[in-house]
Nucleic acid binder design. Structure first.
Lengths: 212, 212
DNA sequence: ACCCCACCTTACCGCTCGGTACAAAAAATG
DNA sequence: CATTTTTTGTACCGAGCGGTAAGGTGGGGT
């Protein structure tokens, strides 16, 4: 019944996390449906039966890969939430997202989006799964911003949900841009502009927008 | 040698634009790789040889579908560019984009992104093609905003390229959200926030952001 | 009325897909 | 060293993929 440390039998010739990282990269670059089993086994350096014995199926491997991606590549989001002010949280979130989207040691963009925004009907579960992951991040940010409103860090008229959605939308848009080749500097210039909205909402000149 | 009006022989039993609109919808909902020939012919109401005789291949059909999508569904972007001020251009662009992203008579989201952000290597041309389409829209907006700077409508320190990129990124983020089920009202609330950045940049309180 | 020719229908092509059966191979156990 | 247990490599499975060949079908032109 004890799991994890199988002692008897032939030991594995690969490290599970290592090959999982390879799978992350392939899914990241080509999406769920754009990634074939052959591409996976080729990149992971293992063969098909090993993959299935370890991960169960292509879809389960993808779920594992996405979980590992969030742990290893989106950790910055949790770090940003710890900062003391809403402005700092949002700036850190967007800045480190841009840095992650344009780092050279992995595919550009974001697995949450490139993994499969739209899929064939039989793979609809995959896009729903990814959307749920993004929604979870947005809710965490929303809670943090709601706290900022309660603490008086943001004015009471600010809607934390809308602001969280705006920040996530900007990040997702940057992911789309990064996937298409935008540079780090270009995206930071866009962050500059997004932050002006946050600054305006943070009380300095609230209501400056001309919209009714 | 005259094209377009084939007079001899059996006439087509379908209208080319009508079946193309059906193809747009299927690609829009399931992406390029998530759409099979069977799904296409089923939705278009024609059979495979008719499709190939008319459109050449799946990829060419997609290109035609994307062109038609831009003509019929993204016409609002060109309309927005005609408005007199940069603020109005941006607001109209984002507002009508949200309305288009959440209209009930077609799939939610945006074909440019759902069509295939990441594809398998053999379909890489498709995602490049879509990215080129998005870049074209961004450049058109950039030119319009550059004109606004020249006219004094935007302050001289505003970078039209960065602002256009920001606006497009927000729109793309909204497309991702819409594909995941965000409502029209939710996205308009995000537009409200984005417009605060534009208002701040438009001269009222430029430099309010604390970022260095 | 005839013929013609493009279109529609059916059935099929080679290929790759995700997934698996089976036996050789390799370490721990006795 | 034989046995056990697990992994590995190879070779294969049915199904669906994108794309096509060939003949029946039906609305023109003359």
């Amino acid at each position: 019944m004890d799991e994890g440390t199988a002692s008897v039998g032939r030991p594995r010739a690969f490290d599970e996390e290592t090959v999982l990282d390879r799978a992350v990269e392939v899914f990241w670059r080509h999406g769920y449906e754009g990634t074939s089993l052959s591409a996976l086994t080729g990149a992971m350096g293992i063969n098909r039966p090993s993959l299935y014995a370890t991960f169960g199926s292509k879809e389960e491997l993808f779920r594992r890969a996405f979980a590992r991606y969030r742990e290893t590549r989106v950790a910055y989001a949790a770090v940003a939430l710890e900062l003391p002010t809403a402005y700092a949280v949002i700036e850190e979130h967007l800045r480190s997202a841009v840095d992650a989207l344009t780092a050279g040691d992995h595919p550009p963009g974001c697995l949450s989006i490139q993994g499969g925004l739209a899929c064939s009907p039989e793979n609809a579960r995959v896009s729903e799964f990814l959307a749920a992951g993004r929604a979870a991040g947005e809710e965490a940010l929303e809670r943090r911003l709601a706290r900022a409103v309660q603490e008086g860090d943001l004015p009471p008229h600010v809607d934390p949900r809308a602001l969280a959605r705006f920040v996530m939308a900007v990040g997702e848009g940057h992911a789309v841009h990064a996937a298409a080749g935008a540079t780090r500097e270009e995206l930071h210039a866009s962050v500059d502009i997004a932050l002006q909205a946050v600054a305006a909402m943070s009380g300095r000149t609230a209501g400056a927008a001309g919209a009714s």
